[in-house]
Amino acid sequence: LEARLEAADLFKKVVEAIKDLVQHCNFDCNDSGIALQAMDNSHVALVSMMLTADTFTPFRCDRNIPLGIDLTSLTKVLRAAQSSDILTIKSEDAPDVVNLVFEGKDQDRISEYDLKLMDIDQEHLGIPDTEYAATASMPAADFKRICSDLLLISEAVSIECTKEGITFKAEGDIGNGSVTLRQHSDLENSDKNVDISLTEPVALSFSLKYLTGFCKATGLSNQVRLCLSNDVPLMVEYALANNSYLRFYLAPKIGD
């Protein structure tokens, strides 16, 4: 494997966004790119990352290799990379370590780290292709704000999506709160759009602790997409350049 990223920033942010949810995971490398799928310990949330080969310049991977990595250790190594550094990830065929090289843009500093790999026996889960009843795209910063505000009211949020908009409701001991985003297109700045497509109305409840955790990915993308169907896990997607993505799945709360 040899994969070079123009800016370490992307990889730093991806790892930062998932490291509190999952601790040990396999980065599955093959000729299509670097993928990761891992569930949290409580089996409530799942992270699915894809960094396509096109994200790297260049990308070369001659055979499928899983790189079992402790994300806490990887975070320590990535601290040494500045956001604008060129990052190269390298590994041998049957590796004991993954090699990370950080080069300053002006090329007067080269840092090289070897990170020990772990044997991780991780089962791969099939995520069924789902035609979601509702998808809502919105500014990622707005979603983060809504989740963190409502977490002060309650540990759960009910998300209701209709043709009119998407509503987040929290009911807590101190009172209730709700935020509605109406569909709109900002002609000057499409990053501010709220776009809803709906085949049937949905209403589901989720843990805000997990949703605020997913929002650690906010810096990766201007927009976030929520995909919902009644009685199936929510998908929260941060789309990245070159068809790469960071997706989170969250099991709904079950009504009594």
Partner: peptide, 14 residues
Amino acid sequence: ISGQGTLGEFFKPK
């Protein structure tokens, strides 16, 4: 108060 579901019933091992 509702309980928390898990992903196991939706996503099966490959």
